[in-house]
């Protein structure tokens, strides 16, 4: 196999070197400017053009996604069937105890009561765009500033917490999902009430940090928002513990959390029209 490479001219080398330096400068300026930087304003302008294009694609592929989900549910292998049966037994045991439901019911009731008492608004929204690269965990919704959406508002899917609004345009907004590497959610383990921080990562894994090594953690244990920091309401379901590890000598455990929301399947969400919601939990 023959590859004949051409020797680059000195002007080409200078040009390429210059472009690399400019790229690094842009990255540095953006990093220092953070979410309020000048370049982010340019990005917001770009989103005005990008959002309608993404919305058309999302609309056009909706039947394909539905068909794909339907087809994937048709074929159940014996192994899957066995796993489902085992899961069924486990679920029946949980239902029998009713403890989890009682707690969840209490929490949701308090949340609804609180929302009603405080006169907080929620607004429904449709997903019109999804992530454009493997490095991000972002969704675009069809509600923007003209609907009253503001930066930082929490976004929920029917299964649990999805993320928060990090960019608002007139008629669309972008949601940073809890699995994004820039996301961090103050959380609490349901049984032990041990607090920590659930963080996303570039590879899409969700981990809970700062949980003491001597805390008893169980696989499948629910992870909820703690409400600390005021970003998210207290008591929203984030996911469940899928793995945990205590390394010798470490102060904290390494806990992997399985998010409850299937991002690729979610079609509609609810935006909490208030950034700070505190639901006081009583005795459980």
């Amino acid at each position: 196999m023959k590859i004949s490479s051409t020797r680059p001219r000195i002007t080409d080398r200078v040009l390429i070197g210059g472009l690399i330096i400019v790229s690094m400068l842009i990255t540095s300026i953006d990093h220092r400017g953070g979410e309020e930087g000048t370049l982010r304003a340019v990005r917001q302008g770009a989103q005005v053009i990008a959002a309608p294009v993404a919305a058309v694609g999302n609309w056009a592929f909706t039947p394909v996604r539905s068909a794909s989900r339907w087809l994937s549910g048709l074929g159940v292998s014996p192994a899957d069937l066995e796993a489902l049966e085992a899961q069924n037994v486990s679920l029946r045991a949980q239902v029998a105890s009713l403890e989890e439901e009682r707690r969840e019911n209490q929490r949701l009731t308090r949340l609804l009561e609180f929302v009603a008492r405080e006169g907080l608004d929620t607004i429904g929204a449709r997903i019109i765009g999804r992530q454009v690269s493997s490095w991000e965990a972002v969704l675009v919704i069809d509600r923007g500033s003209i609907d009253g959406v503001e930066l930082g508002m929490p976004v929920l899917a029917p299964e649990g917490l999805l993320g928060h609004v990090f960019e608002v345009n007139d008629s669309s907004s972008r949601i940073r999902l809890i699995t994004d590497q820039k996301s961090g959610v103050a959380a609490v383990l349901q049984s032990s009430r041990q607090e920590g921080v659930v963080s996303g990562s570039a590879d899409g894994r969700l981990t809970m940090d700062f949980v003491s090594a001597d805390t008893t953690v169980t696989a499948g244990e629910a992870v909820l928002t703690s409400g600390i920091g005021g970003m998210y309401p207290k008591g929203l379901l984030i996911g469940s513990v899928s793995e945990f590890e205590v390394r010798r000598g470490d102060l904290f455990q390494t806990i992997t959390v399985e998010p409850l929301v299937d991002v690729h399947a979610v079609e509609s969400v609810v935006v909490l029209m208030s950034r700070v919601v505190q639901v006081q939990e009583g005795s459980e």
Partner: peptide, 28 residues
């Protein structure tokens, strides 16, 4: 090479702007 680098820089910058990651990294 010259065209590849220039087109890469310009498209990478636009890609950064329509995405949500740090701006400039895809340009690089």
């Amino acid at each position: 090479q010259r065209q590849g680098a220039v087109i890469g820089f310009v498209t990478g910058l636009i890609f950064d702007l329509v995405g949500s990651g740090p701006i400039g990294v895809s340009a690089l």
